[in-house]
Each structure stands twice: as structure tokens, then as C-alpha cells.
Amino acid sequence: MNKCLFLVLLFVSLSGNAADIKPFPRAKISVEQWQGYFDSVAKEFGETKRVYEEHNLVVFSDDAQRANIAFTTINHPAHPAWVTRYVTQDNESVYVAQIGYFAGEEPPFAKLFKDYAKLNEKVKEHMGLEAWDK
């Protein structure tokens, strides 16, 4: 993904509601859980929807949590899966955190998750933030 895309994915947010960052206890979920969460996010944050056909992703923004939720589309090797990236902080540091879920095969999801972790490192370098993976 290019520099402009990761900045858009991380920082463009329009909504005032909040999504559940960790809706399930484990990363491996069912297709029905994936679809239910996608439907919920699409309903709540539909006005923020951005489609990145070249990356086979649909991204929604949650301004309340400074989060972006990137869902794979049917042609993505990790589909069905999503990665949520959000900005969080403790007393002294600000972090780009991420969490993800998959209902398909784990290896393509792991690659997607690692690709986002690399973007987090670029954001960390660019913005002076810490990167943190769950």
C-alpha cells in the first residue's frame, strides 16, 4: 500500500459513533460472525465507506475511537477477514494499535495482518508514535 493510502486508512474519520474494537475473544471466527460485524459496521459507519478495489478492501472510519476498520472483499486472499487499526495512548505514549479477525485461512490473514503492522511502523516513524499489535 502506498503512503497516501495508509494515511487515509488511519486518519480520515467522519463518524461520531463507536464500534466494538474487540468484538470476539479469538481471531478465528465464523463466516456468520464476520458478516454480522461487517453489517453492523456498515450500518453504523456507512457514510465513511471507502472502497479500495486495487487492494480488495472496504474501509470504514470510527472517529470516536480514532479507528479504521478494513474489511477484505471477495477477491482478497484473506477474505473473509478484517483488521482494525486505532490510535490509543497510555500515560506517556501514543500508539497505533491493531487487532484482526478472520473466517478464512490463517496464512493469508497473517500476511494481511503483517502488512498492516508494516504500515504501523511507517506511521510510527512518520508521526513519532509507537506501534502496538494485539
Rank of each mutant, 00 (worst) to 15 (best):
M1H: 13
C4L: 14
F11Q: 08
S13N: 09
S15R: 12
N17A: 13
A18P: 03
I21K: 03
K22Y: 14
P23A: 03
P23H: 05
R26M: 02
I29L: 04
S30I: 09
Y37P: 00
F38D: 00
V41T: 02
V41Y: 01
E44R: 01
F45W: 08
T48G: 02
T48A: 02
K49Q: 14
V51Y: 00
V51I: 15
E54M: 07
E54S: 15
H55G: 05
V58K: 02
S61E: 04
D62T: 03
D63F: 12
A64E: 14
Q65N: 15
A67H: 09
I69R: 02
F71Q: 03
T72M: 03
T72S: 02
P80M: 00
V83L: 11
D90M: 10
S93A: 11
S93K: 14
V94H: 07
V96D: 05
A97R: 12
Q98R: 13
Q98A: 07
Q98S: 12
Y101V: 00
Y101T: 01
F102E: 08
A103P: 04
E105V: 00
P107C: 07
P108C: 05
F109G: 01
A110L: 14
F113R: 15
K114F: 05
D115Y: 01
D115L: 11
L119V: 11
L119I: 13
E121P: 01
K122V: 04
K124P: 02
L129M: 10
A131G: 08
D133P: 04
K134N: 10
